[in-house]
Amino acid sequence: MTERAVAAKLKSDGWSLVEATGFIQLVGPIWERLVDGDYEYALHTQDKHHNRRGLVQGGVLMTFADRTCGMTARYVTGRQTMATIQLDVHFVEAGQIGELLISRPRVVRSTRSLIFIRTEVMVDHRCIAMANGVFKILKGE
């Protein structure tokens, strides 16, 4: 399926593009939608995401998990500036190029200065990575 066809399908399923600059723009496009009050995110893997074995590069999975957890932290707190202070990622299964990655981050705990979030990166009903992140809410923002 071409990237144009994938984009059309995602749009018809209620997804919208996430605006991105810098490094994330190189990784994406990343898509988002609101389902029952919670955000979920999608990344269609392309040839640019492959490792030497032709599978989805682990760094792509880590970046996707970090970005989606961070975006969720911003939505939940209403604060725009945060910093990832810890991200633990467990690779469960290989992702294939051409698959659609889905992340549905959930808040585990939130304090005045930290927010703890977890997500699973899924392809259909297969978990290919799990991540737990801690995000610092920056002062003065």
Score class of each variant (00 low, 15 high):
H49S: 15
A94N: 09
I128P: 08
E99T: 04
F23S: 07
D124W: 00
F23P: 03
R53V: 10
H49V: 13
M1G: 15
I117A: 07
P29W: 01
N132L: 06
E93F: 11
G59H: 01
G22I: 05
G98A: 05
A42M: 07
E93Y: 09
M62T: 15
A73R: 01
C127E: 09
A83L: 14
G59C: 08
A131K: 02
T63K: 04
G14D: 07
L100D: 10
L55G: 11
R74F: 05
M130H: 13
V6G: 01
Q86C: 09
L87V: 10
N132H: 13
T2F: 03
T21Q: 12
G28D: 09
T119V: 03
E120F: 01
L101I: 09
P29V: 05
P29G: 06
G58T: 05
V134K: 04
E120Q: 13
G28C: 11
Q96L: 11
V134Y: 00
H50C: 12
R53M: 10
G140I: 00
R52G: 12
R33I: 09
A131C: 09
H125D: 14
Q80K: 15
F64I: 01
I102N: 02
R79T: 11
R112G: 12
L101A: 07
E120T: 07
Y75I: 13
H50E: 12
R33G: 10
R118Q: 14
M71D: 12
T72F: 05
I97E: 03
G133H: 01
K136V: 00
E99M: 09
W15V: 11
V92I: 15
P105L: 04
G133V: 02
G95C: 07
H50Y: 09
E32D: 14
G98N: 05
R67L: 14
R53Q: 11
A73W: 01
L61K: 01
S113W: 00
M71Q: 11
A65V: 06
L10G: 07
G70V: 01
L87M: 13
I102Y: 00
T84F: 00
L17K: 03
M62S: 15
S16V: 12
V107E: 02
D36S: 08
E40W: 03
